[in-house]
Amino acid sequence: MGEETERNSAVKYRPFTFFGGKGGTGKTSCAAAYAYSLSQRACRTLLVSTDPAHSTSDILGLPLSAEVSRVAENFWGIEIDAGLEAKRYITSIQDKMLSIVSPVIVDEIKRQMEIAYTSPGAEEAAIFDKFVELMDEQGAGKRFDAIVFDTAPTGHTLRLLSLPEILGSWIESLIAKRQQAVSLFKMGGRFDPEMQKRAEDDPVIESLTLRRDRFEKSRRYLTDPSACAFFFVLNAEKMPILETGRAVEMLQKYGIPVGGLIVNRVIPEDAGAFFEPRLAAQGEYLKVIRERFAHMKIATVPLLRTDVQGLEQVGKIANIIGEIDS
């Protein structure tokens, strides 16, 4: 019995775990396996996917949707639909606008709203906002003990995670300029009621401040080593090693804790004569990885006989990946 309690308290998890890496290396499989291993240790776990190709549903063998749905005991999943989230955001702005200004003006600037809505950063921002919403409203023990993010291919993810820092300074300068304008309106508006109106509680400063506070909060989550970690999934090949090195440096630059590496699809030693040349090359790359990332936790996941499909298969890698926390 003593052993039982000891095992339970030994379950280590953090509120937020991210899995990143190049497309096809096995991020989705590893994220699903990690989430599954947590759920099996009585940790209420949410798996979050951003892949528009629905690969998480394929790997779990269960359809996920844009709302949180149950996968198994202590295991939930959601597939964020970036387009849908952006649409919701725009609709709420349009509703607010209709309650403030005349429909004529709304109509006149509709086209401009479309421009911003379809701008290149829009989907990333929509995904990021949903991440923060989940972390803030449902994470850290509220509804889920752990949230596991299966993020999009490396470049995009890094841009996403660097948003709070870049946006932070953009907002600061906006608030400063707007405050200057408002105090000038105050000085110049002594006999001008229209200017006077502008000098009273400015809704622009208010909503800029709200946005800034949200970025700061997400930044606090993302840079807290006790709350968050980022794992890289790679295969024992040459190019991924270089790319992973660059990505690790970039995350460190933004102060985001890197939890370790997962080398996926490692060919077992007893794979047979056919695999011998590959095994030799793989041995070299594994050596390079262990040297290059000597200070990091590294887990290796074997190549399975078949694709990862269904919870049973996921369970096969779950034990190995679960170890990365101990």
Binding site: A86, Y89, I90, I93, K96, M97, S99, I100, V101, I105, V106, E108, I109, Q112, M113, I115, A116, Y117, S119, P120, G121, A122, A125, A126, I166, L167, W170, P203, V204, S207, L208, R211
Partner: peptide, 25 residues
């Protein structure tokens, strides 16, 4: 970005639009 200047933050700028819509034109 409405004038063609690239603005990576335009998505978040939209939420100020209701309060500045009258100034826009």
């Amino acid at each position: 970005d409405f004038l063609g200047l690239p603005n990576p933050m335009s998505y978040y700028a939209l939420e100020m639009l209701p309060y500045l819509a009258e100034d826009m034109i």
